[in-house]
Nucleic acid binder design. Sequence first.
DNA 1: CCAATATATGAGCTATCGCTCACAATGTAT
DNA 2: ATACATTGTGAGCGATAGCTCATATATTGG
Lengths: 208, 208
Amino acid sequence: MPKKALTHPRKTASQARSRLTVDALLEATARILVKEGYDRASTNKIAALAGVSIGSLYQYFPSKEALVAAVAERHAERAMGLARQTFARVATSPVETALRELVTLSVEAHRIDPELHRVLAEQVPRTGRLKNVEALTREAQGLLRSYLETHRDELAIEDLDMAAFICVTTVESLTHDAVLDHPEFLTGRKLPRLVDDITRLVARYLRK
Amino acid sequence: MPKKALTHPRKTASQARSRLTVDALLEATARILVKEGYDRASTNKIAALAGVSIGSLYQYFPSKEALVAAVAERHAERAMGLARQTFARVATSPVETALRELVTLSVEAHRIDPELHRVLAEQVPRTGRLKNVEALTREAQGLLRSYLETHRDELAIEDLDMAAFICVTTVESLTHDAVLDHPEFLTGRKLPRLVDDITRLVARYLRK
DNA sequence: CCAATATATGAGCTATCGCTCACAATGTAT
DNA sequence: ATACATTGTGAGCGATAGCTCATATATTGG
């Protein structure tokens, strides 16, 4: 008799076969979320679309909440990957150009699977399960804080933490809202102006 | 036999008694949302807390969604009331002071029933029912646009709509996030600095 | 007082959903 | 080949939720 399978806290997939299953589940969840919305996205539908039995789903995710949280985390991690690259690249660039690159990055990040992004933002309840996603926001603030610190002589900042909070929140919110609700600002003509304006907004705030 | 009561599209309450019922329902919904969260807030619990039968609830609201949307609308309308007053008062003030008052207003608005505000923001799915709430955001942008237009000579703005979008979104997001997730910026010492910084952020962006 | 209308009641229907569990199949080590 | 661990299966349980409807009570106008 196999050791009593601890009902809930499932092991992470270790063998190749099971990793495929987990991947299929994450992908199916993302697609069902987009197609049906959070409420109508039932675990049964998800398992069916993944081509996997409902039992297997619960082998790897203790609850629907955890499954959706994993999808959100994977999505946020992709954006954060871009962000880390960009911060590394601009580490020694002057403020103005660095900020412009960061704003551009933010727009691009919000264009990764924007429909999924919308559902995650608009329909998934923010419960404790999303702690890992919040951690990424804090990481972004930390990265900017470091940048600001090393360029402090170019800047007029008293409270580094507050400045990092203000800049990250501002850029994120503006690009988020623009991508989700203001397509008119993303047309060929207007997009450069939007990037310009957001850059100017934070640059003038920070510079002496 | 009374005319077949159209099953769903309920009349708005007209007599005094029924208006009390509707009010009790809205208030009970707000309190249950805060106490239980959106998912666990069942219509039966709401009716019970309101001291009203479940049938009455469905006389005035065709669905749980509509009921919650009404609560969200009432909440947003309160904030918008403050905003209209403030815009009226600062209509002829110079940019810097007007912006400072608007930022202060935004902080105060986010302190109206902040726990309800959190639930509405974090747990209520953004469906079509919230169109009226979105309309209020657009109204705020319109009000700021008008202000900017009449003070255009003090400003360096090319695209009024974009500038209004940027300012409103920025101030709203920053105060929202600060109130909900950054109590450390709202202590006695730091709150004035936060207001200062947000004001400076948008003022420098707008001014020549 | 007496219709006629507006408002209120709540037991219970229908539907669905998240999730379990007893079992089967597949992979692996000896 | 055998034994054991890992992975996969899916019918169906228990719970709860949203909502209806037949009926009762209150209010109003004539």
